[in-house]
Design a protein around this nucleic acid. Structure first.
Lengths: 350, 350
DNA sequence: CTGAAAGCGCTTACAG
DNA sequence: CTGAAAGCGCTTACAG
């Protein structure tokens, strides 16, 4: 019941009959020092006592903790679990563990970063997308010499590493796909553009417009509806688009959640997908394959982003001199499933 | 570019013109010690230098790190993000951060626990469900005096705190609901019962049998199909059940993923839900509300489990004498949505 | 009210 | 090859 005093290096030294420094040398594999005999005695003693070094003490002197700090917005939000899994996987492979903090505002981001710095994380990965663009706190970390990489945060600086994917491209690929199927009257259910506006929403909309422009197609502004990245925004958008004299024949929704909501909304009004309307989403959420019909979507490389971020930060920690910051853009993929089809495909065969 | 030497308590002492101990006292709010004047000077100096205490050094002397260790199976698996969110929320409210480790086997569990102990986590929350029942490593942690609470891990010990929910009850509630709707020929798509068998699968099946027995209903063993907790297991189960001379009129699937797969499988064969077959799932996955029809399911209290686990471990850390281990069972809820309906409801009205 | 000293558990030059 | 000493940055009795 009472807390057992953990065994220290001093205990090992006593049992092995050598000094503290010798134990330390042997245990840290500083070769060419200890004699085979001494080495064996130390190792035996350590094993016998089940000695585990106190990471705090070691970190205090080495200025290295074997810990990666992570700040994200909210682990329950789509995309984050996969990113975190990618990071944790690479980190643990390299013997590092992950200190997780969630931050929903710039203030909390700052606090999270402070905590991570206080606890001497060797490096930091940052994937928090508050609406506030302010990011002096990220630079502050970099200036303190702590490697930090930001995932998909717009930063016009080369002072820290960044992993990004192109959300304009996400919108463009989805829209190009619909265009390639012969659709001309194409709508868009956007993400959060208002107040706490999300940059991915803005960019995906831009990609939509870009693809339309490149194809010489007009954008009917009544077909662009602002959603909220959630199911209900898509559901509501369906109602509004169906109210129009001339609804679109295809729609790109800026997230799979909205695409599913949109499809459910269409079904409610007895409109079929993809027969009457083609629907493409974005993200490749885990649900996307399993809804009916399975969603055509643009996959965003979240797991890879997590893995690369960890690799980059690890490299920055362990290689001397410190490599310069990197900016990497990861490719997005169009996944064609059954929610989209050629405009009037059966008919046009006649 | 070059790493800045962080400011230490020594710098603050120098600027304030007092000793290290005085700075420490003031900064830790040990009242009744410093004079108002001294206190002001120290605070001013600390602020001016933007002093942040080194958590490693502090932890080394106080044996307290402000860190909660967490071991889970895989953050991308259903249920885990919500648990982690619940834990992180309570932890950060109390000024604690979360050290996250993922472990897919008993060996990796052990390694994760060792790491957490090495890094001196003040307490540990454990929600890893390997198939191996071996859990000596959990007890080992408790014996070292580090508070640990296990979430939904079957352990016949009172040596450590546990948060559980009753998976038998999950199966029972879902099945009782189907029975109450007038169904008598009820099937079950079970979770993983084979090789790396999952206890929740076994228990939910037991709950199914229990409810049937309590209602005096026979279980036709051909209607009990083993799945894999995933979509495809449910999909495949639909094919097999529809092959029967007399398929069930209602089915309880041990997870929402399987329920969705099952429904998709039924639809593939033009069987309607809930008109032809009622389907109930379990877990209340985020998808469950948004599929068509929205899933009747038994919600499992994951976020609450995370929160309670954090509260219990925090209480064990901060209250003296250490409170005895607790075992808490959290209630599960039946959520009736549209995937289940009364047997022959329109017909029986005639 | 304030400071000098010891110590938390390690590692790292530096002697020998 | 091995050990004594200093020090990482703090906190905590203990004197004064």
């Amino acid at each position: 019941m009472s807390a057992v005093r953990p065994v220290t290096i001093r205990d090992v030294a006593r049992i092995a009959g050598v000094s503290l420094s010798t134990v330390s040398q042997v245990l840290n594999g500083h070769h060419g020092y200890a004699s085979a005999d001494t080495r064996d005695r130390v190792l035996a003693a350590a094993r016998e006592l089940n000695y585990r070094p106190n990471a705090l003490a070691r970190g205090l002197v080495t200025s290295r903790t074997g810990t990666l700090g992570l700040v994200i917005t909210d682990i329950t939000r789509t995309l984050f679990p996969k990113v975190v899994a990618g990071i944790e996987q690479v980190a643990s492979q390299h013997g590092y563990s992950v200190l997780l903090t969630c931050a929903g505002s710039a203030d909390r981001e700052r606090a999270a970063l402070d905590t991570l710095l206080d606890k001497r994380a060797d490096g930091i990965i940052f994937m928090s997308n508050t609406t506030e663009a302010e990011s002096g706190h990220l630079l502050m970390v970099a200036q303190q010499g702590v490697p930090i990489v930001a995932i998909n945060r717009p930063l016009d600086t080369t002072a820290l590493s960044q992993i990004v994917w192109d959300d304009v491209e996400v919108g463009r690929r989805a829209t190009e796909h619909l265009i390639s199927l012969g659709h001309r009257r194409i709508g868009h259910v956007a993400g959060t553009l208002a107040a706490p506006r999300r940059l991915s929403a803005v960019n995906r909309l831009a990609g939509f417009r870009l693809a339309m422009a490149e194809a010489g197609l007009p954008v009917d502004e009544r077909l662009v509806i602002e959603g909220d990245f959630q199911h209900d925004g898509g559901f509501e958008a369906a109602r509004r688009l169906l109210d129009l004299d001339q609804p679109p024949t295809a729609v790109f929704a800026a997230s799979d959640s909205m695409a599913v909501g949109f499809i459910n909304g269409l079904h409610r009004h007895r409109v079929r997908v993809p027969d009457d309307v083609s629907v493409a989403g974005a993200n490749d959420d885990s649900c996307a394959v399993y809804v009916e019909p399975p969603l055509t979507t643009v996959r965003v490389p979240v797991a890879a982003a997590g893995r690369r971020a960890a690799e980059i930060v690890l490299a920055a920690i362990t290689t001397r001199p410190t490599p310069p910051p990197i900016r990497e853009t990861l490719a997005v993929d169009l996944l064609v499933r059954r929610s989209t089809q050629r405009l009037d495909s059966p008919v046009s065969l006649c």
